[in-house]
Amino acid sequence: MSMVDLRSRLPALAPSILDADFACLADAVRLLEAHGADFIHLDVMDGRFVPNISFGLPVVSAVRRLTRLPLDVHLMIVEPERYVEAFIEAGATIVTVHAEVSPHLHRTVQLIHEHGARAGVALNPATPLALIEEILPFVDVVLVMTVNPGFGGQTLIPSVLQKVRRLRARIDEQRLPAVIEIDGGIKPSNVGAGIAAGADVLVTGSAVFHADDPAAVLHALRTEAQRAWLAHRSGSSDGD
């Protein structure tokens, strides 16, 4: 598997299929492909690390067969190191594990890279940035949860954006390659705030799949993300 250049796609939309109709999964993937998704986000939940169970390897493998888009696999599971290789074999392009359940995080990140995927580390809303200080130079993605993980359809926690700002400053100061992904409660009305805080990749789920016109929401997300990205990069505060 060749490494995907994450920065070539920024700002990026990574719609989550968690809220899609799984009876029509192929239609959901085609919708995302046709209307501007850069990645497809897959939330794998085990009912232990988070209070819900979603799906596993067969769904990742099925989505891989349906699309050429990069698959952004978010492992909300305990002992993720046991399953990293299998998820990459199933088609994951990016594998993200939670710092809260990965005591040997450097080893896990190495394992992901050794098997040809991009490595991400995720933080829950109340988890401090200090937990990933030592691993930050080695990861490709930092996923900051903007809701407490486990369920779709939640409201973004605004205070978490301050953590995103601090993370952005740290990455820029150290000139690190990691991109920042935010996940939870993202919709057209707050995309600008997320980008202004320093996010590069935006995960959205229920805002798209619960909408009457998902294509229109995807278009609005893309428009707002690009507007805020250009404003942020030019030093404007329009996206705040």
Rank of each mutant, 00 (worst) to 15 (best):
D5T: 02
D5P: 09
L6Q: 04
R9N: 13
R9S: 15
L10K: 15
A14D: 10
I17T: 09
L18Q: 07
C24A: 07
A26I: 03
D27C: 08
D27R: 10
D27T: 09
L31P: 08
L32N: 09
A37Q: 07
F39H: 01
H41N: 07
M45H: 13
D46I: 01
F49M: 11
I53N: 01
S54V: 00
F55A: 08
F55M: 03
P58W: 12
V59R: 11
V59N: 09
V60Q: 11
V60H: 06
S61C: 00
A62V: 03
L66P: 06
T67D: 12
R68A: 15
L69Y: 14
P70L: 11
P70G: 14
H74W: 00
H74P: 00
E79P: 01
E79D: 00
P80A: 08
P80M: 10
Y83I: 06
Y83S: 10
V84C: 08
E85Q: 10
A86K: 04
E89W: 13
A90R: 02
T93F: 11
T93I: 04
H98A: 10
V101L: 05
V101P: 06
H104M: 04
V109M: 02
I112V: 15
H115D: 12
A119N: 14
L123Y: 03
P125E: 05
P125S: 07
A126C: 07
L131C: 05
L131V: 15
I132D: 01
E133S: 12
E133C: 06
I135R: 08
L136M: 08
F138K: 12
V142C: 08
L143W: 01
L143T: 02
V144E: 07
V147K: 00
P149C: 05
T155M: 13
T155K: 15
L156F: 13
Q162M: 04
K163I: 05
L167V: 05
L167E: 00
A169E: 12
I171D: 05
Q174V: 12
R175H: 12
R175V: 04
P177Q: 15
V179F: 12
V179R: 10
E181I: 03
I182Q: 08
I182K: 08
D183M: 01
G184E: 04
G185N: 14
G185R: 11
G185S: 15
I186T: 12
N190M: 13
V191Q: 03
G192H: 03
G192S: 15
A193R: 15
G194W: 06
A199G: 05
V201C: 12
G205F: 04
G205W: 03
G205V: 00
S206C: 13
H210C: 10
D212L: 10
D213L: 10
P214C: 14
A215V: 09
A225H: 07
A225T: 06
Q226H: 11
W229P: 01
A231Y: 05
H232V: 00
S237P: 07
S237M: 11
D238T: 13
G239P: 02
